[in-house]
Every structure is written in structure tokens, then in C-alpha cells.
């Protein structure tokens, strides 16, 4: 049996309590100490660390707020890749594959798991040891690849997904944007906030529904 791999993330990022401010600038307060060990479903620990570092360069924590590491984007990507999406369970995979014709979107044979495995390797084992500008240079060199397109897209998804998917830890991404989560009704508010922000404390789908729900990748393995 495959050895269980984990990634250690700082609890400050994963569970730090965020207070939302109306200026749109989230404030981290009352952060927890220590580390959380998150079991990995697809990545090896080494791969996960490269992905954490690369996603942080794509969506960094900076003056405008938290970034990919704090949101747990790597957990989101890991779960997606281990689910039906990662193995192209619902993609059209009949040959012939013609990747030469432009404009068709991705026409290749490799599934997201394979694309990530090769892509992460290409970023290099030493990627995590490089400084920011050097990491950026490596990413710049693969910017045109489908792997990078996926990595960028998945970083955004992991920032702003419902937390049941593993990303957007503590709704940190939603707080960053002032997005309230999948609220069931704005009937009272519609048309009354003309050019004025309507900002409430965001809630996850599960919090709003009041009962547990399961994302696709938990219900179906890849």
C-alpha cells in the first residue's frame, strides 16, 4: 500500500480567525499556533511543497490581502486531482489526438494527474529553495504551457471555492473579495445597494444549508 503522504501547513493560515472589515481589507487576528498535517490524496509531500510555492507566486499574500498558501489552495488541487476530474473520467478521450490545430482548447491525451506530475517535476526539485524572483523566472518559462494554465486556473478556484473542496480555508478568499457565500436570498437587498457595498460575514454552503454536503471529488474517486 502506498505510504500516506502529508503536507504541513501553518495553522495561522489554515485556521487563523479573520475579522472582516468594510474597507475590503481583511485583518488576521487571533491566529492559532503551530502546524496542521493535511493528508494528501494525490501529490507526494515533495510535489505538494512545490505546488504550494508555485501557487503562492501566482496568488501571493501581499498588501491586498492573503494568498494561496493561507487559503490552502494546494489541498483543493490535491483533492481535484484525486477525484474524477484528475483522471479525465468525464472527458472525451477517444483518439486521434491532434494537438497541432490551434483554437480547440486542450486536445492532448494526458489527464490532469499526468500533466501535474510532469509539470511539477519540470519546475524542479529545488523550486522551494529558490527566492521569489527565481521562482517567478521558472514559472515565466512555462507560462505558455497547458500545465501553467491549469495551475493558474486551479489557484483561483482554490482561493474562492466553497471550503468543502479543501481551499478557501476559513473563507479567507471570500473575505478578501467581500463575497458573502451562496446566500439563499437577496430579495430584501436587491435594488437597495446602488453603488454601495453590501458586505456580511460570509458563510459556506454547509453553514447556510445546515447539514453536511459532499463535493464530487469526495463522492467519486478518479
Amino acid at each position: 500500500m502506498k505510504r500516506r503522504e502529508f503536507i504541513e501547513l501553518s495553522a495561522q493560515g489554515m485556521g487563523g480567525l479573520l475579522i472582516y472589515s468594510l474597507t475590503g481589507r481583511p485583518v488576521v487576528a487571533n491566529a492559532h499556533e503551530g502546524k496542521v498535517r493535511v493528508p494528501l490524496r494525490f501529490f507526494t509531500e515533495k510535489e505538494a511543497k512545490v505546488v504550494v510555492a508555485a501557487c503562492e507566486r501566482i496568488f501571493p499574500a501581499n498588501e491586498s490581502g492573503p494568498g494561496a498558501t493561507q487559503a490552502g489552495v494546494v489541498v483543493y488541487i490535491d483533492h481535484q486531482l484525486a477525484g474524477p476530474y484528475g483522471t479525465d473520467k468525464y472527458r472525451y478521450t477517444q483518439p486521434p489526438f491532434d494537438e497541432s490545430a490551434p483554437g480547440y482548447g486542450y486536445q492532448g491525451k494526458e489527464n490532469p494527474q499526468e500533466i501535474y506530475r510532469a509539470g511539477v517535476q519540470k519546475l524542479g526539485d529545488d523550486f522551494t529553495e529558490l527566492d521569489g524572483p527565481k521562482q517567478d523566472a521558472r514559472l515565466k518559462a512555462i507560462e505558455h504551457t497547458y500545465f501553467f494554465r491549469l495551475l493558474r486556473q486551479h489557484t483561483i478556484e482554490g482561493m474562492f471555492c466553497d471550503p468543502m473542496h479543501g481551499g478557501n480555508a476559513n473563507l479567507i478568499g471570500w473575505q478578501l473579495l467581500g463575497y458573502p457565500g451562496p446566500q439563499m436570498s437577496y430579495r430584501e437587498q436587491i435594488g437597495k445597494y446602488n453603488g454601495v457595498p453590501y458586505r456580511i460575514k460570509p458563510q459556506s454552503l454547509e453553514q447556510i444549508l445546515g447539514y453536511p454536503i459532499h463535493p464530487w471529488e469526495d463522492e467519486e474517486k478518479g
Partner: peptide
């Protein structure tokens, strides 16, 4: 439909739509 108010599964992966694997 309430449970499906999840952008990843419904809007992005399109779980409720015809599977492209069947042939579009």
C-alpha cells in the same frame, strides 16, 4: 438545487450537464 449552489461542481465541472466523455 440548493445543495448544488456550488460553483466548482456545478458551474465549472458541470456535474449536471451531459458528460463530454459520451461525445458532444
Amino acid at each position: 438545487y440548493g445543495r448544488e449552489m456550488d460553483e466548482v461542481d456545478t458551474f465549472i465541472r458541470k456535474r449536471q450537464a451531459e458528460s463530454p466523455a459520451n461525445g458532444l
